[in-house]
Amino acid sequence: MLSVSNISKSFNYRSVLKDVSFTLNAGETVVIMGKNGAGKTTLLRIIARIMACEKGKILFQNQNLFDGEPSIRKKLLYIGHAPAMYTALSAIENLTLALNLRYIKANASKILDRLNHFGLGMQANDPISIYSQGMLQRLKLAYAELTDWDLLLFDEPFTGLDQDGVALMDKALTQWIKEGKTMCMVLHNMERAKQYGDQILYLNHGVMESL
């Protein structure tokens, strides 16, 4: 499904990732752990083609992500720390736009249904600039459920969620694993990592170690 080989990246000549390689088979979940600043987010953003890297190659569904057609990335979804949505637009408008950009026909009632499910129904038409961290996290979850992905890159799914939110997130992740979906997550909690991950990788100052 995903094969990352020899990714190197530095910021101002300070190496953040050194020859990072790993593979992820279909139906597997890999959890990436590591200290703050270890390069976890950078790695996910490079796979999502948001960040450029100096060296390396990434194959997604056996196609080269770095010089292929953009449509290769159609089934690759990245959900990062920041919501990657427009502060001026409402949840519904943002989701409609995000889905349209992935060639998915957006259905307003379906979107509203998902937002209701994650407890955002009341604020569905408010601009997301007033959302709290937890609400944004729920919004991302709704986005992931509405999108048709084969590989999800999820950066710290549990940050900022309340008790109910954690339960919702847990339910969604478990459901996806049960459905045999492929995921690559960044987590900080070892218990959770063991719960979800088929593979746990540890990034130590830009070097990949498996546990």
Binding site: I50, P70, R73, A84, S129
Partner: peptide, 19 residues
């Protein structure tokens, strides 16, 4: 500049579209 708020630009450049 507004594309950088909430990292919104990521939505555009990670989408499977011609940049």
């Amino acid at each position: 500049a507004y594309e950088k708020e909430f990292d919104a630009f990521s939505m555009l450049i990670s989408a499977p579209i011609d940049r």
